[in-house]
Computed example of a mutant assay.
Amino acid sequence: MYAYDTITEAVADLKKRGYTHDFNISNNRLRSDNLDTHFGHDDFEIKEVYRFEGPSDPADEAVVFAIEAPSGTLGILVDGYGAYNDDENTEFVKQLHERIVDRLKG
């Protein structure tokens, strides 16, 4: 596992390592503008996770996910959490975080 000081540093390094697609959550599905498909919360593998907490500003809190789609496509999902989290996709994000906790326990 790598250690990063900033979100920008994490994203730049992941892109250098082949995680070139930018994933977003829309309608409780994982999507990429470059792919003609979408994924449910169990339809992809979370390869790496990096959490960032702002020392004084809740807007600086985020999680960076390195993701592998079933096709082998690699990409990144950056999820802000805290006061500015998107309520529309809360269930999807909750399930992502549950997968991480289960992975850490296992």
Rank of each mutant, 00 (worst) to 15 (best):
K16M: 09
D102P: 00
K94L: 14
Y2H: 13
R51M: 07
A12M: 03
D60L: 12
V63A: 08
D33K: 10
G18I: 10
R51Y: 04
L77N: 06
A59R: 12
E61I: 02
F39S: 03
L77K: 08
K94H: 12
G72N: 07
H38V: 02
G82S: 11
T90F: 14
T73Q: 10
T90G: 07
V63H: 00
N24D: 09
K105V: 15
R103A: 15
R31H: 05
D5L: 14
T8H: 03
I25E: 11
L14W: 04
D87E: 10
V49G: 01
V63T: 15
A59Q: 11
P70S: 08
V49L: 02
D22Y: 00
L77S: 05
E98W: 01
S56D: 14
Y81K: 01
K105A: 15
D43E: 15
K94Q: 13
Q95H: 11
A3I: 14
V64G: 04
D43M: 06
L96Q: 04
V101K: 12
L14I: 06
V11E: 13
F65H: 02
K15A: 14
H97F: 10
G72L: 11
H38R: 11
F44G: 03
A83H: 04
G72T: 09
R103F: 13
G82W: 11
N27D: 10
E61R: 04
L30E: 02
L74T: 09
V93C: 05
N89S: 08
H97L: 11
N89I: 06
D13K: 04
L14F: 10
I25N: 05
G80L: 04
I7V: 15
F92G: 01
K15E: 13
I67H: 02
F23D: 05
L77Q: 07
G18N: 05
D22M: 01
T37Y: 03
L14N: 02
A69R: 01
I25D: 05
K15I: 12
E53I: 15
D57L: 09
H41W: 12
V78G: 01
R31F: 02
A83F: 10
R51E: 14
D86V: 12
E88W: 03
H41I: 07
V64N: 02
L14K: 02
E53D: 13
T90N: 10
D36F: 08
R51L: 07
R51P: 01
D102T: 08
I76P: 03
R103E: 13
E45C: 05
S71H: 01
